[in-house]
Structure formats: structure tokens, C-alpha cells
Design a binder for these strands. Structure first.
Length: 874
RNA sequence: GCUCGAUUAACUCAGUGGUAGAGUGCUUCCAUGACAUGGAAGAAGUCAUUGGUUCAAGUCCAAUAUUGAGCACCA
């Protein structure tokens, strides 16, 4: 072990071996699988052309920890990997590439463009999954899927056609969110952000020439589509104007002044232009008042004939030109600064327009049963408060716009007959004839589905649902749906609760009659050390791959896990990584110590631990095992990691190893215990634990099984030796404290006396060499009485005396006085409680017992302190 | 505006009605044969504020303040 631990080499090698041995697959742990124990978790498919970022690192680390835990705990385990075709994102990347080559997708044509997109997908797909491998994660790679692979194309069609035939997918002309670059977007794909815009006050003259009203708008370029002007019916200022006609500025078109309570009299001028084809509210008003819907620009945002002299201009570029003309013609009253929210496309950041368009929608009723079942507790959120967000979003659910004007994606499986206009949905790739008139002239809808439509099916489409016979034998086992649906757990970020989780819930329930998950764990955001969001523009991005190179995957994983408290954002910093690097260093050195003394160590299984120290450490390991399991079962990753940090460093190293220096016979046992602890830690730090385990066993991964398919520690019983060691440790600390009093803290001293009651002679005998070694005293002696001419320390379970000629009385007196004050406080508090009749009457028995004991301990300790003080003062 | 969080040691954060916890940092000391990426001892708290429930509140309830997120939104 002398040449040190080289994480990068070990991590790559070990990963490769384990993957080749198919440990990650469903039956990778066949030898330890227990009947009826199944565990399944779906990887949220990252974008196929994406790059690993710190958020991925967190989510996949947590998923891997749970998966490895379950796999070692005897579960038949499926962690389903895959990537997402990410419609808009990927198409935009390919379009940019074309642009750089001086061409466009239109020039290329749909078929060639798709070839390009597939080629790009093939080229970059491996990058993300290779980066995942660097993290040391263990999904069942042989079952890796892509949301547009042949099988999933089938299952998407299956789902679509089913919903279509039930009338739950409909096509209609509605107002949608329109990005002039990316086309229709669903409501959640629009990000609202405050803009420092302008408020343009424009004169709208009466048609009869008798004056004007002042109308305020933030989007003057839409006024060509005005089909009314609106005031509040109760507004005294404008009451008489209702019914009057307005002639729109620069145009000959006349519109009526109508009244509607939607108007806020106190905002702006109280007069509102109504543009039903370009504003969500106006759309509703237009329908209410039976107004004309005039669309003034095309799908690319280019103004049309209605804009008359401005025809051909782009909507946003036209704004200033229009305003200038209005001003020249005397229609402009004033321009104010105005802060207001503006919707942006979540992919390209373009300003989104409300736009009337014919699109496909999934009706919101699809979700009804999933909402009901979620609230009946069929699926459980971690942390639980997320159900509130889920419910509030579900409560305001609107029809989901699923058609996208893209080429990259699942083309909508609806066909139109060119001859009889019949419309039908079909699972066939290319239906040959119209089912109504048998015409062969049929055309498929050119649009594709929202990426999230295929993602919504992920928890079951990957289990073979709707896949037909595509790669049946390779990808699936016959019982997959039975074994793995509902998925045991979903781990993902709260940022895609609506995009993805809610949609999976509705689709999963709809097609399988059961919600797709038992547990849903939503993790928080990873921020920088100051608590700021990481972003490229701020330059505060921590790249997980850099951190793996600099530290190791183990250290990155452990740091993320120990920071992952439920419901709280994670502050990531190099400092934290360094602390955990120190921890791995500690583990490495502990192994080195063990091996300096003994060459190889047995496994705990079937090995009898006989020494006092061994039995004590086993007891502590058992406690740690119990706590780690409990924490993992509740997805408290931070608690589990903290328990192991504490056990391995503060208990095993600080006490176990140190005590073993006085009892070399126990070292072989400590090694066995350490090896078991490596198994406990393995899900968090898979590589160094594997390495140390084999080092200490005298084996190697190349020639023997990995601990990742060995049984997870399960013994949780505690032993009576704990009491004994509490006393020993108390005595050692007490002697060390007493030494500080005579300024001999780290020097070896000749003699110390310890006064302990209620301990057997045999235990005393065992204590002597141990305490002498750890407290650095040549000779420790027991005493029944107080030792004169000595400094002393009063601990929980004992008193210590160090004889000395030169005692600095003042420092000792001040220490004892402080101790006395503290004890007095404690005694007072406990007395107060125990003298309170109502407390004694109401508190449970165990609390009473505990408090009585605490009181008697505290007051007997205080008595000793007081005695010391008196004798010193005399 | 509505909803959901957060507020605990100098810092980062745990905390499950029953005497307030960890790591880092700080103070003092130690290069002892696993480890200075280390070891020992210690100091450090009005649990944001104010009420309430309870024998008992950091923990439950209400209000306030500060702060973060999500949703909605005024042309």
C-alpha cells in the first residue's frame, strides 16, 4: 500500500471491470437477491446532446447511492438509464450548425435535416453517458434507451392514438404561447420576467372628429389588430362614450367603444385597446363581445396587410418605427417608463407572443384521477410539502399544448385524407389508405410532439409498455411491468415537478391505473459557496468533471451526499471538497496502520470477535449501521453520510485505532470491522471502499467479486462493552484535562491516580495499560481516596489526580468555580422541574427517571467540585 | 397578489415536544513509528421577534420582521 491511492486510475479501472461483469444489470446481484424484493428507479433522461453539470452530479449521486444500497440489500434492482431527444434544444443546436455552414433547414429539407440531427445525436450521445460513468453511477446500461428509439416511437404512438380515440387529445384553434423562432409552447415553457419597458399613451380619435380618448399600451405594434376600445361600465369619465366609434390612428378602420368590467379604472388611462388575436385577456373579451379576431403578423412575426404601410417589418423592430410615425402625425401623447412582466421562450429567450393558432392539446381531464390518487397518499413526496406545489399547479391546470412546429421529435401520428378530408390517428408508420374513402392520398400532420409527451411515458414505456416486439429479448424481462411498476422511487429536481413529474403522474395513472411512483424525492438546487445560483455568465460554475479530476468521484459524491439535507439548497465549495478529501485520506491511513500490523484480515461473516475492544467497536459499527439504514430509508443522505464520517473518524480512528496500540491483539478484529464499514460506506464512495476492502483482504477486484454485490451490513445489536469503554474513555480524557492544568498536556508524565467507583477488578486491570498509553502516563494507579498535593479533574464517571509540587492554584480554582456554576444551573433547572407537581404528574415515566438520574449525577459531581474548592482554598 | 420554504455558535449547516449538536474557524498545546489532508484540551448560543398551546417549545399554533423560491398578473 506504500505507493499511495491514485483515484483516477482506480476509478476508471474498477468501473470498467464492474460494468463488464454486468453488476449493474437487473440480475447483477443474483447471488444475494431475495424473493419478492424489487426496487426500481428511472433515471431522469438527460438531454442527449447535453453536458454533465453539477445538478446532474447531485441527482445521479443520490440515485446511485440508493440503487447501490438496495442492490447490496438483496433487492432485484432496476435503475433505468436513458437520454432524451430534447426537441427544441437539439433542433436549435443543429440549426446553428447549419447556419455556420451557410445553409438552413428549409434549404436542406425535412428528411435531410433529420438525418443531420440523428448524426449529431449519434456523435454526441456517448459524451453524456461517458460523463455519467465518471461519476461512478450504476444504472443498467444494457437497457439504455433513447426517447426516440424504435420501441419508444411505438409506445408514444400507442399512447397518442389511445388518448385521441378517447377524445382526450383534441385539435383546435386557440390562443397559445407563440415563439416566432420555436413555434407553439406550453404554458410552463414560458418564463415571465420583469422588463423595463415603455408605456405608450396614444390618441384614439373619435370617428366623428369630435375629439379623442387616450389609450395606453406596452405593445403599440399590435394596434392594427384592435377591434374595440374598452372602458369600465361604471367609469364616470367615459360613461357617455360607450357605443361611440373610434377611427384607429393612421388607419381608416373604425371600432366601437365597449364596456367591460375587466377594465381596471385606476390603471393607466382607464381606456383599453382590445386586440383579441394578440392578447390572452383580449381573446376572452373578444369572445364575450363577439369581436373580430385580426391577426397582424405571421408565424415569424412579420407584419401583414393589416399593418398597411408597416407591412413586412418584424414586430419588435417595427415598434419604434410605428411610434415615430404616430408621433409625427400627432397621435403620441407621452411615453412613460414602465416595468412589466414579459414572457420569454425557455429555450431561445425570444419574447413570446400570445397568438391564435391551430394546435393539438391533451385535455386537462386526463389528470383527474392522478390528482385524486396523489392526495389519497398513493404516492408520497419527500419532503412532503411539495404536494402543495403539485396541487396548486394541478388546480389551475389548462389543456396541454403538445404540438410543436419542429422537425426533431415524434411526428404526430395523425393523418389527413387529401380527398375526403377525413382525419384519423394511426399507430402505423405509413398507413396506406384512408379508412373512410380508401384514397391513397393521405398526409401526416407535419408537427411533432412536445418532448415532455414522450418523457411522460418513461416510467413504463421503458418497461416494455407499447414497445411492441422491438428488441423484446434484449431489453426486457417478461415480468418487468409486474416487478417494477409502479417505480419504487423517483429522484429528481423540483424544477421539473410540473414539466415532468406531474405529466408522468397523469400518464402513468391513465394507462396503468396506478400512479407511477411510490416515493418521489425532490432535491434542491446546488449553489456556489455564497449561495448564488451557478451560471456561466457569473463565472461561478463548479464543473463536476473538473472536481472529479482534482479530487475524485468518491469525494464529489460524498460531499454532495453529506450536504443533501431535504428541502434545503446545497452550497458547494472547494473547501467542502477538501474536508472530504481529508476524510478519504484518513481512511487510507487507517488501512495503512492496520496493514502495518497484520497482513490480511478476515471478513466479519463467520469470524468471532473476542477482545473487549473488538466487541466495543462492533457495537459501535452496529449502531452506525442501524442509523445509516434508517437515514437511507427516509432518503436522509446527509444524515447517513454524517453517521459514517463520525463512526469512521471519531470512533474507529480516534478511539479504536488509538486503543489498539495498547492492545495489538485486537487489530485483526479491527481490520475485519473496518472492512465491514467499507461495505457500509460503499454506496457513497464506491471506489476507495472497494480498493481498501481488497487491500485488507489480500485480494483484488481483478480476481474476485466486488463488494457492490455483497450483502449490505445488517447487524444492529449493541453490546454491553459500550459501558466499560465509556468509563475508560472518560478516564483518559480526565487525565489529559488534568495534565493541561499543570501545563504538561502533551508530555509524558510519571504518575496519575484515578478514582472510580463501581468497576470490577478485572476491568481495572484492563484499563491500566490502555489509559497509560493514551493519556501518556508511565503509570496509572487506582485510588480509593482523594490524593493530596495534586491537581485534579472531576469527570462524569471518575476523578483524576496528578501529584505535583508546583500547583497554580488560581487557574485550578477558576476552572472549578466555573464548573461549579455550570452544575448549579443544571441542578436548579432539574430541581425546578422535579419539584413541579404538574410535571411529575404528567411527564412520562422514562423522562422522570432520566431527569432524576441526571439530578443525582449532577449534584454528586457538584459535591466533589465543592469539596475540591474548599480544600484548595484552605 | 397567492402559495411554499428559511431564520440555531464567527462561518456552513443538522436537530424526531423532554438539559443545545456537528464540521470548519478560534484559543492553548503537540512534528508520539497510520495520517500535520494529523493529534489533544478548551472557549464559544437571547435557537429572528412577540404572543399562544403544553407539566415541558429550537421543535406545535398565530402574528410580525428579514430572506429565498414557485405561481399569477394591469392593458
Amino acid at each position: 500500500m506504500s505507493n499511495g491511492y491514485e483515484p483516477s486510475k482506480i476509478e476508471n479501472e474498477f468501473y470498467k471491470i464492474c460494468e463488464e461483469r454486468k453488476y449493474f444489470e437487473v440480475d447483477g446481484n443474483k447471488a444475494i437477491q431475495e424473493e419478492g424484493k424489487n426496487f426500481s428507479i428511472m433515471m431522469p433522461p438527460p438531454n442527449v446532446t447535453g453536458r454533465l453539470h453539477i445538478g446532474h452530479a447531485l441527482t445521479f449521486t443520490l440515485q446511485d447511492i440508493i440503487t447501490r444500497y438496495k442492490r447490496m440489500d438483496g433487492y432485484k434492482t432496476l435503475w433505468q438509464p436513458g437520454t432524451d431527444h430534447a426537441g427544441i434544444a437539439t433542433q436549435n443546436v443543429v440549426e446553428k450548425q447549419l447556419l455556420a455552414e451557410g445553409t438552413t433547414k428549409e434549404e436542406l429539407g425535412r428528411e435531410k435535416f433529420l438525418e443531420r440531427a440523428w448524426a449529431w445525436k449519434e456523435e454526441s450521445a456517448g459524451i453524456m453517458t461517458d460523463q455519467l460513468r465518471k461519476m461512478g453511477v450504476t444504472p443498467a446500461w444494457e437497457r439504455e434507451r433513447f426517447t426516440m428509439d424504435a420501441g419508444l416511437q411505438k409506445s408514444v404512438k400507442e399512447a397518442f392514438v389511445h388518448l385521441y380515440n378517447e377524445g382526450l387529445i383534441i385539435r383546435g384553434n386557440y390562443m397559445v404561447n407563440w415563439c416566432t423562432h420555436d413555434g407553439a409552447l406550453s404554458d410552463i415553457e414560458v418564463e415571465h420576467e420583469d422588463h423595463n419597458g415603455k408605456f405608450y399613451h396614444i390618441k384614439y380619435p373619435f370617428a366623428d372628429g369630435s375629439g379623442f380618448v387616450e389609450v395606453a399600451t406596452t405593445r403599440p405594434e399590435t394596434y392594427f389588430g384592435d377591434t374595440a376600445v374598452m372602458v369600465h361600465p361604471d367609469d364616470e369619465r367615459y360613461k357617455d362614450l360607450i357605443g361611440k366609434k373610434i377611427r384607429l390612428p393612421l388607419l381608416q378602420r373604425e371600432v366601437a367603444i365597449i364596456a367591460d368590467t375587466h377594465v381596471d379604472m385606476d390603471f393607466g388611462t382607464g381606456v383599453v385597446k382590445v386586440t383579441p388575436a394578440h392578447d390572452q385577456n383580449d381573446y376572452e373579451i373578444g369572445k364575450r363581445h363577439d369581436l373580430e379576431f385580426i391577426t397582424v403578423f405571421d408565424e415569424k412575426g412579420i407584419l401583414n396587410d393589416y399593418a398597411e404601410e408597416f407591412k413586412g417589418l418584424e414586430r419588435l423592430e417595427a415598434r419604434d418605427i410605428i411610434v415615430k410615425r404616430l408621433d409625427e402625425e400627432g397621435f403620441m401623447v407621452k411615453i412613460e417608463d414602465h416595468k412589466h412582466p414579459v414572457g420569454h421562450c425557455y429555450r431561445c429567450k425570444n419574447i413570446v407572443e400570445p397568438y391564435i393558432s391551430r394546435q393539438w392539446f391533451v385535455r386537462k381531464e386526463v389528470a383527474n384521477k392522478s390528482i385524486e390518487k396523489t392526495n389519497n397518499g398513493e404516492a408520497q413526496f419527500f419532503p412532503p410539502h411539495w404536494i402543495n406545489s403539485y396541487n396548486s399547479w394541478m388546480g389551475e391546470l389548462r389543456d396541454w399544448c403538445i404540438s410543436r412546429q419542429l422537425w426533431w421529435g415524434h411526428q404526430i401520428p395523425v393523418f389527413y385524407c387529401d380527398d375526403c378530408d377525413h382525419e384519423f390517428a394511426s399507430k402505423d408508420e405509413a398507413p396506406s389508405a384512408c379508412p373512410k374513402c380508401a384514397s391513397k392520398n393521405i398526409t401526416q400532420d407535419p408537427d411533432v410532439l412536445d418532448t415532455w409527451f414522450s418523457s411522460a411515458l418513461w416510467p413504463f414505456s421503458t418497461l416494455g409498455w407499447g414497445n411492441g416486439d422491438v428488441e423484446m429479448d434484449k431489453l426486457f424481462q417478461s415480468d418487468d411491468m409486474k416487478d417494477f411498476y409502479p417505480n419504487t422511487l423517483l429522484i429528481t429536481g423540483f424544477d421539473i415537478l410540473f414539466f415532468w413529474v406531474a405529466r408522468m403522474m397523469m400518464m402513468g395513472e391513465k394507462f396503468n391505473g396506478q400512479l407511477p411512483f411510490n416515493h418521489i424525492y425532490l432535491h434542491a438546487l446546488v449553489r456556489d459557496e455564497k449561495g448564488d445560483k451557478m451560471s456561466k455568465s457569473k463565472g461561478n460554475v463548479i464543473d463536476p468533471l473538473d472536481m472529479i479530476n482534482k479530487y475524485s468521484a468518491d469525494i464529489l459524491r460524498f460531499t454532495l451526499a453529506i450536504s443533501a439535507a431535504q428541502g434545503r439548497d446545497i452550497r458547494m465549495s472547494q473547501e467542502k471538497l477538501e474536508l472530504n478529501r481529508n476524510f478519504t485520506n484518513k481512511l487510507y491511513n487507517a488501512s495503512k496502520y492496520l496493514q502495518m500490523n497484520v497482513d490480511t484480515f478476515p471478513d466479519m461473516k463467520g469470524f468471532c470477535i473476542e477482545t473487549d475492544l473488538g466487541r466495543y467497536m462492533v457495537s459501535r459499527l452496529n449502531l452506525a449501521t442501524k442509523e445509516v439504514r434508517a437515514a437511507l430509508d427516509e432518503y436522509k443522505f446527509n444524515d447517513a453520510a454524517t453517521v459514517m464520517y463520525r463512526f469512521l473518524w471519531n470512533e474507529f480512528c480516534d478511539w479504536g485505532i488509538e486503543l489498539s496500540k495498547a492492545d495489538k491483539g485486537s487489530i485483526v478484529e479491527l481490520g475485519a470491522i473496518f472492512k465491514e464499514a467499507m461495505k457500509l460506506l460503499h454506496p457513497f464512495m464506491p471506489f476507495i471502499t472497494e480498493y481498501l476492502y481488497h487491500e485488507l483482504s489480500g485480494t483484488s477486484l481483478e480476481t474476485s467479486d466486488s463488494i457492490m454485490i455483497s450483502s449490505y451490513p445488517s447487524k444492529t445489536k449493541q453490546r454491553k462493552e459500550e459501558k466499560k469503554f465509556e468509563i475508560i474513555m472518560d478516564a483518559i480524557v480526565s487525565i489529559r484535562r488534568a495534565k493541561v492544568l499543570v501545563d504538561l498536556a502533551n508530555q509524558k508524565i510519571e504518575k496519575a491516580f484515578v478514582k472510580i467507583d463501581g468497576i470490577s477488578d478485572k476491568d481495572k486491570e484492563m484499563m491500566l495499560p490502555v489509559s497509560a498509553r493514551l493519556a501518556k502516563v508511565t503509570q496509572v494507579e487506582f485510588t480509593e481516596i482523594k490524593v493530596e498535593n495534586a491537581v485534579s479533574d472531576i469527570a462524569e464517571k471518575c476523578e483524576t489526580f496528578i501529584p505535583t509540587d508546583s500547583i497554580d492554584l488560581s487557574s485550578i480554582i477558576s476552572k472549578l468555580t466555573k464548573q461549579d456554576e455550570k452544575l448549579q444551573k443544571e441542578v436548579d433547572k432539574l430541581n425546578g422541574m422535579l419539584n413541579n407537581e404538574r410535571f411529575v404528574a404528567n411527564a412520562p415515566e422514562d423522562v422522570l427517571v432520566k431527569n432524576r438520574e441526571a439530578l443525582s449525577d449532577a449534584s454528586s459531581k457538584q459535591t466533589k467540585v465543592k469539596e475540591q474548592l474548599t480544600s484548595l482554598k484552605n
